[in-house]
Amino acid sequence: MSKKPMHGSICMTDLSNAFKAKHSAFNKSEKNGKLYANIAVWLNDEPDQYGNILSFQLNSKKDAPDEKVYFGSAKLPVEKTNEPAPTPDPTSTDELGF
């Protein structure tokens, strides 16, 4: 199976606000002192209206199920073809009659 990158975006504002609100998904490593966000990523059954097939959510602790924060989505890139664009027929007229 080929590994294709997916392209998407995450909302840094939502993540920052959730961090400031002390969302249970954020923690600081005792080993290296770095901050981490526990996330849930899933493949959607159907693409959404924008063609996204992946969704991202902060993964709350079990005792805080009400903290659902969706912060991003992703989709497969549109594959470009090397075929040239069709050339319009100069003998035909368009809708405006030109």
Rank of each mutant, 00 (worst) to 15 (best):
A74I: 01
E83L: 15
E67Q: 14
V69E: 06
Q57R: 09
I39P: 04
S73I: 00
K31W: 02
L54I: 00
I39G: 07
D48L: 00
D63T: 06
P65Q: 07
N44P: 00
G51M: 04
D94I: 08
D45G: 02
L96S: 14
I53G: 01
P84N: 14
E83C: 12
S29F: 03
L96E: 10
Y50M: 05
F71E: 02
S29C: 11
D66L: 03
V41K: 10
L54M: 11
W42D: 05
Y70E: 06
E79H: 06
K34N: 14
P88K: 11
K28T: 15
T91Q: 08
K28N: 05
I53R: 05
A85E: 15
T81M: 08
G72T: 01
E46A: 02
P90Q: 10
D45F: 00
N32I: 07
W42C: 05
S73N: 13
L58W: 03
I39R: 10
W42R: 14
Q49F: 00
N32S: 08
L43Y: 07
E95W: 05
D89K: 10
S60C: 09
E67I: 04
N82E: 14
D66C: 01
K61F: 08
V41W: 09
E95N: 09
K28D: 01
N27A: 15
P88E: 07
Q49T: 02
Y70A: 02
P77R: 09
D63V: 06
P90N: 10
N27E: 15
A64W: 06
K80T: 12
D63P: 05
A74E: 04
K31H: 06
